[in-house]
Design a protein around this nucleic acid. Structure first.
Lengths: 163, 163
DNA sequence: TCCATGACGCTATAGTATTACAATAGTGGT
DNA sequence: ACCACTATTGTAATACTATAGCGTCATGGA
């Protein structure tokens, strides 16, 4: 899985776009958010986020590790996992359980319960927020008395571009 | 993780119940379903299903492998994974992606899109079917033109018994 | 009978993730 | 400036999860 150019990679919302822009935007946001909350947005963490942002696909921890290695960072597994844990914990990235892989958060500004659409053919992953899900799940949870702390909603299929 | 007695283990729908009954029922159903569809419900497959049915928790493939070993079955990883693949493929079990683990299907009679509620404290897993989810996701998918093939919906939190 | 298919036995290996501990760097109080 | 404290990183080792590949055997159809 080679690194790709920074422009017009896979689509967010399955539509083409200028990619460089969303990288800068997300990094800037993360930086500010960390500063505001007393978190350390270290070089490794920033670099991992940037790597994730280069594509709208989920990347395995070891793919990221390879990238880090090329950049002269250390390359033992914990390096990647620690950075990923940090990013996920603070909402700058998500784990796609179905793929055992990670993806940059597409709209880190909002507090949200994301739903991911994963294309089986081109491997693109799109993050959406159908509030309905929260509502439907919330109702079920309330009925049985379950306290929801985290949700994983991942849909697998074929994206519009591949159909 | 030791095997538990066959009665009143963790709750389906988080309520106590006679557990032995649901084991028999599920095994019988699987047997008949396989026969009706020309599938081979072999000894290994049956045993793996039974093992899964002994608890309303998700079990790792290697936990199952250990059980199989005790029963005198072969114990190389593929043995468990093959049986699990079969069970999942034909709807007799599900994989809980969040836990990298497997659980017997709670209502194999219906074709369904299950939602799992996972208790962080007692590890029990309950399968529900909030049709709403399908509707909500379906709408979003339609909007973006995505063809849904499979969905993973897993909710993590605290079950009513542990609150 | 011959062959195609599906299940299983078995070995090896790939892929994902964590534990543990030492070293270092950032932070806040004095 | 100094210290104590906490967070982060460096590094090695290991645990956990999953699959590939190939040989064997049983079953059922042409």
């Amino acid at each position: 899985m080679a690194a790709q150019s920074a422009k017009s990679v896979a689509p967010p919302g399955f539509k083409s776009h200028n990619h460089k822009h969303c990288i800068e935007r997300a990094v800037t946001h993360a930086k500010q958010s960390c500063q505001a909350n007393g978190l350390q947005f270290t070089a490794i963490r920033q670099r991992v986020l940037e790597i994730l942002l280069t594509q709208h696909k989920a990347m395995g921890a070891y793919d990221i590790l390879d990238q880090l290695k090329e950049d002269g960072f250390n390359s033992q597994p914990p390096v990647a996992y620690r950075a990923l844990d940090f990013l996920v914990q603070h909402g700058f990235a998500h784990k796609i359980e179905r793929l055992n892989a990670f993806i940059a958060c597409h709209s880190p500004e909002n507090d949200h319960t994301p739903t991911f659409f994963i294309c089986r053919l081109c491997s693109s992953v799109v993050e959406t927020q159908p509030e309905l899900t929260r509502g439907a799940l919330g109702k079920t949870a309330k009925d049985v008395g379950f306290l929801i702390e985290q949700t994983v909603v991942e849909v697998e299929g074929v994206c519009p571009n591949c159909r």
